[in-house]
Amino acid sequence: MSVQFLGMIGHRLASEIIPATGPIFDKKYIAEFAQAHENAGFDRILVGYWSDQPDGFLVTAHAGANTSKINFLLAHRPGFVEPTLAARKFATLDNLLDGRLAVHIISGGSDHEQRRDGDFLGKERRYDRTEEFLQVVKNSWYSNESYNHQGEFYQAENAFSAIKPHQAHLPVYFGGSSDDAIRVAGKHADVFALWGEPLASAAETVNAVKAEAARHQRDVGFSISFRPILGRTEEEAWAKAEAIRAKAKTQLEQSGYTFGLPKPQSVGAKRLQDAVAQGDRLDSVLWTGIAALVGGGYNSTALVGTPEQVSDALLKYYDLGIENFLIRGFDPLNDAIEYGRELIPLTRKKIAARQQAVSTSTSAVA
């Protein structure tokens, strides 16, 4: 397997340890943030979705206009844009980006978040809607003839999209950890995204998704998200982690900002809370300190250590069949630059060496 590194860009400087600064749609920062990832050697960058933040389509378009090589992953929640229109919006953006787009479909893990945008459908039903949404979107993308759709959530008559994705196949990433999420992912996902869980629970999810995809004669790739904290020494890295915990705790208490939490309906949040219950440090370098502060509400677990140690930790997930690593820091822009200096090239080098060893061994046997 090849390895892909994903980052995440925001529309202004902000994190758990950095109070939001600048205009809420900071064009200069968006451009610089995307360029920093491209220069650092990332393959793709995620643009997230929130019920009270700027539109991700336009953030992605602006970032794309200021880069030339890096790919994008646009988060989208079904339920607010009709799938026929969403398909055209995705296809148009993919053409604008010369084929650099993938979409990350999120059904929504918080009733509170969904209702802020006017969606009062329950969580289980949201996955049923997502399944139908993706069916219609793919019909618009790949059908050369008009079609009719009469479903439970959507209806369309004589639907057709003149604009198709620039790519022959526009990748669909899929988020969610529930049985319903796995069921839909098995049918539609190209890449299934996990939050940073311990190795044992990540392996369980990988195996469950693979089994579901096999029922539909499909293969699915995997992505996992971490917040690496690097130091020149192990001690320095852990001291940095504790400083981040202290700053995050203070900022959360002072601001009252909860990052859209809690997410009582989210199985992913529950799985991270289970990891928190196992301890502060798991699998040697997996740290749950920030996940504990935010109730496991988003990708908040960290890998802590030297670049060598964190790279070795990533390889253990790679051995589970996970080939996409979404890494973002608590000092977002500066950490992206730091990852590009050593962690990304070091991990690529180790995987290339493994592949070369396998190739040499195979040639020798032949």
Rank of each mutant, 00 (worst) to 15 (best):
E113Y: 09
A203H: 09
T233Q: 04
K240Y: 07
D319I: 10
S300L: 07
F120K: 15
Y29H: 08
N299S: 14
N158D: 11
W50E: 13
R341P: 12
S143H: 11
Q309R: 14
H104V: 00
Y142E: 02
R88I: 03
A159G: 00
G329F: 01
I17Q: 02
R232V: 09
I45G: 00
S146K: 08
P54Y: 00
A31S: 15
V136A: 01
D283S: 05
Q355Y: 11
F133C: 04
N207H: 14
I70N: 00
A65F: 03
D180E: 15
Y317L: 09
K138L: 07
F5E: 10
L230V: 01
E323F: 09
K28Q: 12
S178L: 08
T130K: 03
S143W: 05
D43I: 04
P264E: 11
D331H: 11
G99R: 02
G260M: 06
D55W: 02
R215C: 07
S359I: 10
A34M: 00
D190A: 02
M1F: 10
T306Q: 03
A31T: 01
S146E: 15
V276G: 10
N66T: 02
A185I: 04
S361L: 14
L326A: 12
V206E: 02
I229E: 03
Y318R: 08
K28R: 10
F90P: 01
S361C: 09
K187Q: 11
A65N: 10
R88T: 01
E152R: 12
A241G: 04
G305P: 04
D26R: 05
Q53F: 04
K27R: 15
P345A: 05
T288Q: 12
F330A: 06
L303V: 09
H112N: 14
E16K: 11
F222S: 01
E308G: 14
L58Y: 06
I337C: 09
P171Y: 02
S68I: 04
D283P: 04
V285F: 12
